[in-house]
Amino acid sequence: MRDFADIWSYLAQTPLIWLTATLVAYLIGDYLAQRAGRAPLANPVLIAVVLLALVLWASDTSYAQYFEGAQFVHFLLGPATVALAIPLWHQRAALRRALLPVLAGLVAGSVTAVLVALALGHWLGLGPALLATLAPKGTTAPVALGISESLGGSPTLTAVLVILTGIIGAVVVTPLMNALRIRDWRARGLAAGVAAHGLGTARAFQVNPQAGAFAGIGMALNAMLTAFVAPWALRLFL
């Protein structure tokens, strides 16, 4: 029988092991999130990232080595962004009926979130690279990574900020909307999709189907709008 260290040194050079590890870590995260009743804080991505970070640290593996395998999953972010046209298409009738309120909520919510984040970040002393990393954090991950990269930010840190934003949005949206006495499910959902992307959308679907549908609209439209708002807003603070 061969030494385990030999087998490990062979496997560590192939993409297979880290591709498999990524999927296994996600399945564990998804299982734990399900056990926790899909509570917003028990996010499968967050759990998977922590697990993988621990495994990389324990096995003394570099991120570059890990990415050799994980890049096959990472690649799908592009096609997934294109596929966001599908929820938008499903909601085309609702979108047409409420076009003006949707556009108002989209622009107001998106611009507010980006400007407040950048103004606070600037005031708290974050440098240009960190501001570029922060600017697209409200939009869905595949789009946010692309914008962050093109602005000179750090896509990996943006990915983490995007997930944290989604968790914050999913946790605060219901109490916040109740406090503001907003009862229109379309408004509540749209705001959740615009400010907290997929995690806000998932939360909105849990609360009310109409809110979920409008959250999907907000997420898809904000993916396009943020590509214009983030570079424009960033220039104001550089």
Binding site: G109, L118, L126, I182, D184, R188, A191, A192
Partner: peptide
């Protein structure tokens, strides 16, 4: 920068949600 990033994330998300929903309601009423 963790503390600064956390403050920026929480406040921008809360204000973005509030302003977005209020703008939708205001225009819908119009």
């Amino acid at each position: 920068y963790g503390a600064g990033l956390a403050v920026a994330l929480v406040l921008s998300t809360v204000l973005g949600l509030a302003v977005g929903a209020l703008a939708f309601v205001a225009v819908a009423r119009l």
